[in-house]
Amino acid sequence: MAEERIYFYPVFIRLWHLINAILCLILMITGISMQFSNPKYPLIRFDIAVSIHNIVGILLSLDYFLFIIGNLISGNGRYYKFPLRGLFTNLKLQLTYYTKGVFQKEKAPFLINKERKFNPLQQFTYLLVMYYVIPVIIITGIAMMYPEIFIPATLLGISALHLTDLIHIFSGFVISLFMFIHIYFCTIGKTPISSFKSIVNGYHEVHE
């Protein structure tokens, strides 16, 4: 029998998650303000947006280090690892559950327990975002902060700064979409707000 409550989110995870969420939101808003800047209707004045985006970007990089080191020390990182074999089958199962099963009150194909904090779809997207997209956005961001040091004039005949910019913006776009989906999927818990409670008090409420 599954336990009713599992202590899933130690303090460092909750703290990191909270900081990460706030910083990402600020970065999204200032990023959009710069990308869609319009002198007549500024969301945030350009130079202010640049300063905020730079400072918060550095803070996010530090927060990411906290995440990496915390995962290494606490062993929380193990929840992100999964065998490649059967990955597609597992993802398909989870996707089918979200597109059909969830409406027919079916049981989730992968029950959450102490050994499995995330379902395969979560593992896959979290790994993709946290270990691929976030490093890319941090590296391209720092490179654009010091373009004279890190960015060559051209790369394969293309302006390297422009390319870095495109990659940075694309990564930001992916993370923004992830955020929407992430927040929505948190409503699929034992009750629509139980997942939000969990990330505050640390206890996951098991549901079937």
Partner: peptide, 24 residues
């Protein structure tokens, strides 16, 4: 059964980034 050591994927990824950054 193929066992994946802890963080292998994450480390390989980070190394890849480090290399591409070096190339850059």
């Amino acid at each position: 059964m193929a066992k994946f050591s802890r963080f292998r994927i994450a480390w390989v990824t980070l190394l890849l980034f480090a290399f591409s950054f070096g190339f850059f």
